[in-house]
Nucleic acid binder design. Structure first.
Lengths: 256, 256
DNA sequence: ACCTGAACACCGTTCAAGT
DNA sequence: ACCTGAACACCGTTCAAGT
């Protein structure tokens, strides 16, 4: 039982057998890794992340779902491949531009492609940034933060935060857009309802209540630029002051 | 078929029948909404979000899984209740403190409680901020951003971004901590491997490679404070300049 | 009013067996 | 080398029926 599993993993991890000009020779379905990723992207774009199951994917490829496991180690790896393929569509900014422009370029590339794939922000946020394209973007961000005056350790942390910041902003935008698209009550209405429902009780929400009129008419584009510029203003207004790498080498700790 | 479903939803939405001093009278399992949420939190803390299934939850409560559906509309609502219960442990800052201190207080409350529940950041990031406690926190953030010089519409957007920023930072921290805890290779090693694996090819990652030595020794606490202060510096260095509410009332649009 | 039993339509994954 | 068939251990949810 152990043995077979081990060899199966070994098979799946040894990929790209020779080239990509090898399929459809004598294989049954002529399934290739790239086909699987392409079909996954199509599925994601059409029906969202919930539809991205091994079984539906196999059906779309005209194959039984266990067939996927010869090409891919498991669903986790499949999702990572999809995530990296998505990031492969993003353009990595040139090194010779000023740091802030590079960070802005990364942001707009994120937004440009992630808004075209359904649920992509959620997908990228959940998966650790593996894969060559994702790491390349990460590397570019680290470089930009380094050039902004952060130490190496700080730049690494900042790049991670930046990534999550962008994914959060874009994810929120796509979530709102999806709500409107599917005809559900626009979120302003939903929140207004909640507010009036609970308003008379002990808790009331003065600021939201005050701003309720503006809830529906937030331009996603302007909001994105605002959030981004606030963050980058913070970046610009700071030289390397904080100290993220402790003196005595110490493991990552979580609060406690 | 339609009718019955409708009444079932009506039943589930009409909750808190009288008070909470009513259960265990003649009911079989004496199941109450609060019990379900409490058991969910315990399950979450012990085995993470993957274990938080209706069936495992029911088992822990000594009940069949369909029983839950009398008390709760579905899994989505269950998760929202759990999320709000978690946020109920956070302290909302006083209004009379300076805006920046309020935002810092919100941040440290987020971090304090989210690091105690497994996968809580992911949970909160995926769910829209419904529920009284979550809305109260959101309201406090909107107030703080308003007092920082943002217009109402801007403050709403900033509060959303702030939430995602915090969830992203804390989520990354807990993810790293989980990797270390479960004995998996610490992420520094993993990334270093990826780097050396792909390094000789066309792509190489100069900045990550340069910073690789610092990857393992990032103090999560210091990193959090760094990211937070950068963001809040950006907030402080900005009066209300941007314009998030468009002149001609226009729906939320995505990209293009 | 509150819960069970049985069923439906799904999942991801393993593994022997086919070709 | 690449794929199928059958199976395992799960999901969330509905709905009639029990008490």
């Amino acid at each position: 039982v152990r043995k077979v599993t081990a060899t199966a993993q070994a098979r799946a991890s040894r990929r790209k057998p020779a080239s990509n000009a090898k399929r459809a020779a004598g294989s049954r379905a002529g399934l290739a890794r790239d086909d699987i990723v392409a079909a996954s992207l199509a599925l994601l774009q059409k029906d969202g992340i919930v539809a991205l199951s091994t079984r539906q994917l196999a059906a779309r490829l005209g194959v039984q779902s266990p067939a996927l496991y010869w090409h891919v180690r498991g669903k986790q790896e499949l999702l990572e491949l999809v995530a990296d393929a998505i990031c492969g569509e993003m353009h990595v900014p040139d090194e010779d531009r000023p740091a802030r422009l590079r960070l802005e370029a990364i942001a707009s590339e994120y937004r440009r492609v992630l808004t075209t794939y359904r649920d992509a922000p959620r997908l990228l946020a959940e998966l650790p940034p593996t894969g060559p394209h994702r790491i390349a973007l990460y590397d570019a961000a680290v470089g930009a933060f380094s050039d902004s005056g952060f130490t190496a350790a700080e730049a690494i942390a900042m790049a991670t935060f930046y990534r999550h910041f962008l994914l959060g902003m874009i994810g929120e935008e796509t979530r709102q857009a999806a709500l409107v698209r599917t005809g559900k009550q626009k979120p302003a209405k939903a929140l207004a309802e909640e507010l009036s429902q609970l308003g008379d009780d002990a808790l009331n929400y003065p600021h939201l209540r005050n701003a309720a009129a503006f809830l529906s008419d937030v331009d996603a584009d302007a909001a994105f630029r605002l959030g981004l510029s606030v963050f980058l203003d913070g970046v610009a207004g700071r030289a390397a002051t904080a100290d993220v790498a402790p003196k005595k080498p110490r493991r990552v700790t979580h609060s406690r």
